[in-house]
Design a protein around this nucleic acid. Structure first.
Lengths: 206, 206
DNA sequence: AAAATTATTGAACAATGTTCAGTTATGGGT
DNA sequence: ACCCATAACTGAACATTGTTCAATAATTTT
């Protein structure tokens, strides 16, 4: 049976997420209330609970969309084959994305789902995709037999970039180092260290 | 005029922060309500507002205490003079602290103070102290004339460690790499890269 | 046309942060 | 010894939150 309103079920879901995104961007998690969303789309609060179990659920799905958008952005970076340049380009794309929508991006980390609620499979897959982009950029530095080490290095670089973006972005680093300078410091030395190493230990099997 | 209750003003403040810490540790930010704190210390909710302006204020001061404790922990690490060993020891102390009180540590980053409320001077100073410990461990790698570069490297390492701890700790890294393995990957290559560089560019002045 | 079905409402509930007039206890002044 | 100015503390009140659910309204099926 078609909906009585002007929007189908899926349209409404998209509407809600869009409104939630807008509110999150302007007011952060604090302003992201059920009533605010409902009012923004011209429905009553109860309607949200037809397609979302929770407000938490709304945030989780919003974060999933954010990760999707981030992935699209990073996937658009065209590799040059030079690891240092490619990793830096990916990191800059990451930071650029985070700086354009700071609050919305922050929500991905600010929001701790209630106990027992796990990361969705879709979200895990997206993160895996993102890491694959970094790993691909590192390809020339590792022989084919060292795929594990290459993936490990990608994870380290990814987490480190995330840390730099988070701390510097939130102004939690006392002096105001530029994010870009820190990224270059990280990537330059990290890749130089890898390149300077004749063999690459498996840090997970000590 | 002495207090009418059994606790002085400062004692009460400490009591509140202690109760807040306990609640935060067991229930996270979600359980940290004014009434829960009040009940835990046997006072009425209104009492909190005599020594704290806000619940936000309670969280901020709790986070300050957390940073103090973290600093104490890292300051207790005795340097050996070998940069790689010392930085790794600091990073491990950091991670160890975070793993012992995961929710409480998480609060430092999970909590975004309302707009306009800045990081306190005391908190900035604590962070600066922490960075100084890392910078000291890097001392042997940089000539005295390159203090800026050394501090920069310390900030990068610190942020990266934070990123690794946060992502791996929250299980947001798909596969379960060990935190320790990632720390070793980070530090090994970063310091090797620094050591392998005959000159150290100032990444803040490109 | 009637019935069945479903989307949507909006009133209700419990719990939250926060305020503040009022109550109670204390210490100093007379 | 009495009082009273002062500070500490209460607890009831208010607005706002997430969430539920009987009632309503609109649409499709019969």
């Amino acid at each position: 049976m078609p909906p009585r309103g002007e929007h189908s079920r899926t349209e409404l879901k998209a509407l809600i997420l869009e409104a939630a995104g807008t509110i999150a961007e302007s007011d952060g998690l604090r302003g992201l209330t059920a009533r605010a969303i409902a009012q923004a789309i011209g429905y009553s609060p109860g309607t949200l609970y037809n397609m979302f179990t929770d407000l938490d659920d709304v945030v989780v799905q919003l974060n999933t969309e954010t990760l999707d958008a981030l992935h699209d952005r990073l996937a658009a970076v065209v590799p040059s084959g030079v690891p240092e340049a490619d990793v830096l380009a990916l990191a800059r794309a990451y930071v650029g994305f985070a700086r354009e929508r700071p609050r919305r991006w922050n929500l991905v980390f600010e929001h701790n789902p209630a106990d027992g609620r796990e990361l969705s499979e879709h979200q895990r897959a997206r993160i895996e995709d993102l890491l694959a982009l970094v790993a691909a950029a590192l390809e020339p530095l590792f022989p084919a037999s060292e795929a594990r080490q290459r993936d490990h290095a990608a994870r380290v670089l990814w987490s480190a970039t995330q840390g730099i973006t988070a701390l510097a972005g939130a102004g939690k680093l006392a002096r105001a180092e530029s994010v870009d300078g820190m990224l270059r410091g990280l990537i330059t030395y990290q890749l130089r260290g890898i390149a300077a190493s004749s063999e690459h230990p498996d840090f997970e099997v000590p």
